[in-house]
């Protein structure tokens, strides 16, 4: 078979995929192989497909994704570490017709911002929370997060997480699903094409809930890699994630249409 040249690939009739205009042309600041970029793109694709480009306000707090505003081509606010749900609460209440989302890491959402997150969920704020769980503090160089697995090595659990000294990993998503204010709670991944398609469907559902004024908060966790923090190649990180993260943080819907999913 003859080899395809780049010129042929980029012919319009051969293109099957195009970057959404809601991602800017700025080169992503994320490490190669990191899931943050894919998660950004999926959110922006959903906003574009829903025609909400001019009606969306995103809030990204401190964490590797603090620079999300460089990449997401909608109105964006940068929040202090942990506080995005408080900002989003006020934005949505003051502009009920707008689409409002937060994009938070696990250190952000499950440690310093637990209070803001739980209360926004429990009040049933009509926002979407996207939660990127990589089991580590990526931005600050790989320290232990509340979600760090038992035995997992980080720069502040260099001999592995010891439950007696450092406490247990926190399944905050299961906890949030118990709150009457949440309507849709799901856990997804973005490390394979199949996972990406599922994650996008979940995000679409979450944003549709908001646009359709369904009372309650929609919460999408994405279990993701942090190859730099885990000190692995991107491929090893994805394999490690499947073998270690997914058994503990099981993928799938946790609460649908306001009802817990029977397991």
């Amino acid at each position: 078979m003859a080899e395809i040249t780049v010129q042929e690939i980029i012919k319009p009739e051969n293109l099957v995929y195009k970057k959404t205009p809601l991602m800017t042309d700025k080169v992503l600041s994320y490490c190669p192989g990191c899931g943050h970029g894919t998660a950004h793109r999926l959110i922006m694709e959903v906003i574009e497909e829903m025609g909400k480009e001019n009606d969306t306000i995103g809030v990204a707090p401190v964490g590797c994704s603090v620079l999300a505003y460089e990449f997401m081509n909608v109105d964006m606010q940068e929040a202090a570490h942990g506080r995005a749900p408080a900002l989003a609460t006020a934005i949505k209440r003051l502009w009920p017709d707008k689409v409002v989302f937060t994009y938070q890491g696990d250190g952000d959402l499950a440690a310093i911002g637990t209070s803001e997150t739980i209360h926004a969920c429990n009040r049933g704020e009509q926002i979407v929370i996207v939660f990127i769980n990589n089991g580590i503090y990526g931005m600050t160089g790989g320290q232990m997060a509340p979600t760090t697995l038992v035995g997992m090595k980080t720069s502040t659990s260099p001999y592995g997480r010891d439950v007696h000294l450092m406490g247990n990993p926190l399944k905050i998503t299961e906890l949030i699903a118990q709150l009457p204010g949440t309507y849709f709670v799901t856990r997804q991944a973005v490390h394979t094409p199949a996972a990406v398609r599922k994650a996008k469907r979940a995000l679409r559902k979450a944003f549709e809930n908001q646009v359709n004024n369904i009372p309650g908060l929609s919460f999408v966790e994405i279990v993701s890699n942090c190859n730099s923090g885990w000190k692995m190649t991107p491929v090893d990180a994805n394999n490690w994630m499947e073998e270690n993260m997914f058994p503990f943080y099981q993928l799938g819907d946790i609460k649908v249409d306001g009802k817990l999913v029977e397991k």
Partner: peptide, 24 residues
């Protein structure tokens, strides 16, 4: 006018940050 009892003063000030940043 929207009135909301926040869960803490940390939350209230960040609600001001978010709301104020929309021009309200």
């Amino acid at each position: 006018m929207v009135v909301l009892q926040a869960e803490s003063e940390v939350a209230s000030i960040n609600m001001l940050y978010g709301g104020g940043a929309t021009g309200k």
